[in-house]
Design a protein around this nucleic acid. Structure first.
Length: 875
RNA sequence: GGGCUCUUAGCUCAGCUGGUUCAGAGCACCUGCCUUACAAGCAGGGGGUCACUGGUUCGAAUCCAGUAGGGCCCACCA
């Protein structure tokens, strides 16, 4: 059958993925082998694959496949995250389109809709990962809202509550008025925005015409003002001591308070205080015992305190108030101002500080072992410098607000028996709660008297248990699986979620397992477009990964995303990289076509072939050492590049060209066998990066016995090798390049045979002569004692090489070329001699270094001598 | 504002504890080639005061200090 000139990925990909699944190669159960475990960073259940996932999961698959080939019991656990805010927002939107308001639904009804949504869209992303070749154990797919998983989340909540780590309290939280929920500090993105600084005058109470001017960016919060604050050292306002101020529009009388918090340099040095709507003002309020007036509804509109603005959104109010304040003579001036505003990561709404009752987790003590064991290297970060960022956060860790005012999530297992702030118990079930309440109150409490907390837990409060709960350790303690697979080995994730997820998993690991959750954390970079912008859906600058796979093949895309993506570095992605990957796949395919085309016969092995085999074997062994070393250091891109060069340059460009029989000629058995063996070794090295192509060729090269598949073939280990062969070959390479250059410059076709005469220098190495003869298409290779006239010549490693003219040449040009080389060598010699004449250098540098310089000097002198003689002879 | 980090070829990056792995790789570029594995290819080639300024040293891309400019994280200046 005629083989296609190019590799056709689509067919191979479908075939082999199915094959691997059928053979259960991805499936893992505990056995006697060393485990190698990776848990996937669970993508949003309703998400679709983007380039970030591609990068992240390709790296994981490379690690997992390599471990599997190394004979480890590789287990890569997939799954999805319920992503409460994001998913609930999607469901709410969808319902709105259908004319259904969330507020019209009961919690159960809403959950039903959400689950339907999840059934419909859930897990698309996992199907997409299969296209990429991800070798996850799909039998172990988890979802953070699954029953058993949920059970473990609630158990942890109850446990931490009982340990006194969880408390409920009124706190200023980041309120998302769009999602109607509190969000954590980490979910708030601060951005600089252009705004206005409004200078508004407030009248001093009891005076006719005495005013103070306050600068604010948020005039609408005037309705919540309960004080005016100045710096006690500010002379300008000393006269306000004991005075009260009338807040404009509302005509509320508020006290003047003095606090060093106020910066006299900013604005007018006079601050309006709205404790309900600003975190700093809140602190001031606590300190100075101020009244708290919240003028905002949860959805960001003004409430009854907003008077005639009631029901209008805060931003609309700001605009209208500018006019009203101006018309009524309160607005002194406005000036442009740049300030930072917090936006919700999920909904992009402007975050409002809001006072509310929330649940918190005390972090300080809990996080101590997590900090310690990263800093002491028990858990390693790649790149290592990420530790610094981690340390900074951990040392300043704040309590974690774990409640969210959402339904799509784990409902907080707190049950209220009264209206008081502390009239509740925490338990795993209603019955248990009733029992506890009965004990607590000393009177009988029935389950139906209890009311469960309406809030759900922050999504990260479930994902922080991921490496533990995928093995059901909390619900089935000490089970075989957790004992076998935990701690997991490597975690591959994005630096953005170092605090959200990585840090908290480490915390949970030490708290619940008494041990680290993973040994290595590999931080990928952010995938950016050509212009350096982050690839995102909203910008529309992210290519569809599935289309890319269709276009370039999964292997091509995998190579494309890995080829220039060192750990921790951003990946500036361009589809041309996938082209490079596809071309590489094609190159390998064609190497296979060549090998496949040979006819094997029982003939003797030529010397050039045995030499080439010896060289390539040494080259491959030394490169395998390098590759394994790079893997150990998690330098995945470099490992790929090193493999790439071994295959393309050394195997295809050098080795195959060397041993290739002339057209139509057969090849000897020994050489053929070795060539196949090398090919198989290379395919094995490539398999983690390019799983489909390698499996395809593995089976094309030979008919295989049952179970002889590359996915479980041993990953090559370096054998010993003779470095001298590598050196000899390197020298030969230089000579070959010289001859090729002559051919090109003199326009001598490759098929024209040439003669080569060598006047050997002291360091001549003739071990590769057969190779030289073969690849340079030489009819003759002889050693001579005297120079050859009428020949092209060059000097390499102290020996002179001559190629007798095949026809007339330009002598002048030859002389000119040699004179140029002579000049360069003389300059080089001078610099070396200068160094050697420096007594301090000779005195203080190590002997080896001085000796090396001396050798350089001698070599240069030799070369100059040869060149001068040559020029003379040509003249 | 604080902390961390970076600056090497047109682009993306290697260069460990200062000296033959010292100025490198891949891509891009230029010049020849449609040579029966591969033009998604082959062969050859050009290209960098290693951000800047000082210092330490016989010797600095490499160590130190400062300057400039990026990036990331944290932070309550209305």
């Amino acid at each position: 059958m005629e083989l296609s000139k190019t590799y056709n990925p689509a067919q191979a990909e479908a075939k082999w993925y199915q094959y691997w699944l059928e053979k259960k190669y991805f499936h893992s159960t505990p056995d006697h082998r060393e485990p190698y475990t990776v848990v996937i960073p669970p993508p949003n259940v309703t998400g679709v694959l983007h380039m970030g996932h591609m990068l992240n999961n390709t790296i994981q698959d490379v690690l997992v496949r390599k471990a599997r080939m190394e004979g480890k019991n590789a287990c890569w656990i997939p799954g999805t995250d319920h992503a409460s805010i994001a998913t609930e927002a999607k469901v709410v939107n969808k319902l709105r389109e259908q004319g259904i308001k969330k507020s019209d639904l009961t919690r159960d009804e809403f959950m039903k809709h959400a689950l339907e949504w999840k059934e419909k869209h859930g897990g698309i992303i996992l199907e997409q990962l299969k296209k990429l070749g991800a070798s996850c154990d799909w039998d172990r797919t988890h979802f953070t809202l699954d029953e058993e998983y949920s059970q473990s989340v609630l158990q942890v909540f109850v446990d931490l509550f009982n340990k006194g780590k969880i408390y409920r309290g009124a706190r200023m939280v980041n309120w998302d008025p769009s999602a109607l929920t509190a969000v954590s500090d980490e979910e708030v993105i601060h951005k600089e925005v252009n705004s206005k600084l409004f200078h508004v005058r407030y009248k001093v109470e009891g005076t006719e015409d005495s005013w103070i001017i306050i600068a604010t960016t948020r005039p609408e919060t005037i309705f919540g003002d309960t004080a005016v604050c100045v710096n006690p050292n500010d002379e300008r306002y000393a006269h306000l001591k004991g005075k009260r101020i009338i807040v404009p529009l509302v005509n509320r009388s508020v006290p003047v308070i003095f606090d060093e918090y106020v910066d006299p340099e900013f604005g007018t040095g006079c601050l309006k205080v709205t404790p309900a709507n600003d975190i700093n003002d809140y602190e001031l309020g606590l300190k100075h015992n101020l009244e708290v007036i919240d003028m905002l509804n949860p959805d960001g509109t003004l409430n009854e305190h907003g008077l005639h603005y009631q029901g209008k959104d805060r931003f609309e109010v700001r605009k209208e108030m500018e006019k009203e304040l101006h018309d009524k003579g309160y607005l002194v001036k406005t000036e442009d101002h740049i300030n930072k505003v917090g936006f919700s990561e999920r909904t992009n709404a402007v975050i409002e500080p809001r006072l509310s009752l929330q649940w918190f987790l005390r972090m300080k003590e809990l996080s101590a072992p997590a900090l310690e064991n990263v800093m002491n290297g028990k858990i390693q970060f790649h790149p290592d410098k990420m530790k610094n960022t981690y340390r900074h956060w951990m040392e300043n860790v704040k309590d974690w607000c774990i409640s969210r005012q959402l339904w799509w999530g784990h409902r907080i297992p707190a049950f209220y028996y009264g209206e008081g702030q502390n009239d509740f118990v925490v338990a795993l079930s209603l019955e248990e709660a009733a029992k506890l309440a009965t004990e607590k109150l000393g009177r009988n409490i029935n389950p139906f008297e209890l009311r469960q907390d309406e809030d759900a837990l922050d999504t990260w409060f479930s994902s922080w248990l991921w490496p533990i709960s995928v093995f059901n350790c909390l619900t089935q303690p000490e089970n075989e699986e957790i004992k076998y697979y935990y701690p997991t080995n490597d975690l591959v994730t994005a630096p953005e979620i170092m605090f959200f997820w990585v840090a908290r998993m480490i915390i949970a690991g030490y708290e619940y397992m008494g041990d680290l959750p993973f040994k290595n954390v590999y931080f990928t970079g952010i995938v950016r477009d050509k212009l350096g912008r982050k690839m995102s859906k909203s910008l529309g600058n992210s290519p569809d990964p599935i289309k890319l796979i269709e276009q370039y093949g999964a292997d091509g895309v995998r190579v494309g995303v890995l080829i220039s993506s060192p750990a921790g570095n951003d990946l500036p992605f361009d589809t041309s990289q996938c082209e490079q990957g596809r071309n590489f796949a094609n190159k390998i395919w064609n190497a296979f076509r060549l090998v496949k085309s040979w006819e094997v016969q029982a003939i003797g092995q030529p010397e050039y072939a045995s030499k080439s085999i010896a060289w390539f074997d040494a080259k491959m062994q030394s490169t395998i050492m390098e590759i394994n070393d790079l893997f150990e250091k998690f330098r995945i891109s470099d490992a790929l590049m090193t493999t790439y060069k071994l295959v393309w340059d050394d195997y295809c460009s050098w080795y195959l060209e060397l041993i290739k029989p002339e057209y139509g000629q057969p090849i000897d058995q020994a050489t053929f066998d070795k060539t196949i063996y090398f090919f198989e070794q290379l395919l094995s090295l490539l398999h983690p990066f390019m799983p489909f192509l390698t499996e395809e060729l593995w089976h094309e090269l030979q008919t295989r016995a049952e179970g002889d598949d590359i996915i479980v073939a041993p990953f090559p280990k370096a054998q010993g090798f003779d470095p001298e062969i590598l050196k000899s070959f390197e020298k030969a390479e230089k000579v070959i390049t010289q001859i090729r250059t002559i051919r090109k410059e003199k326009n001598i076709a490759n098929k024209v045979k040439l003669e080569l005469m060598i006047k050997a220098g002291a360091q001549i190495d003739s071990s590769m002569d057969a190779v030289l003869k073969k690849i340079c298409n030489l009819s003759k290779l002889d050693y001579v004692n005297d120079k050859i006239g009428n020949a092209y010549s060059f000097v390499q490693d102290g020996s002179e090489y001559f190629i007798p003219f095949t026809d007339d040449i330009d002598v002048e040009a030859e002389i000119k070329k040699m004179e140029e080389e002579l000049n360069y060598t003389k300059g080089f010699l001078m610099s070396v001699q200068k160094k050697l004449s420096n007594e301090k250098f000779v005195g203080s540098a190590p002997e080896a270094v001085v000796a090396a310089e001396r050798k350089k000097e001698q070599d240069a002198l030799d070369k100059i001598k040869i060149l001068e003689e040559k020029i003379a002879s040509l003249k």
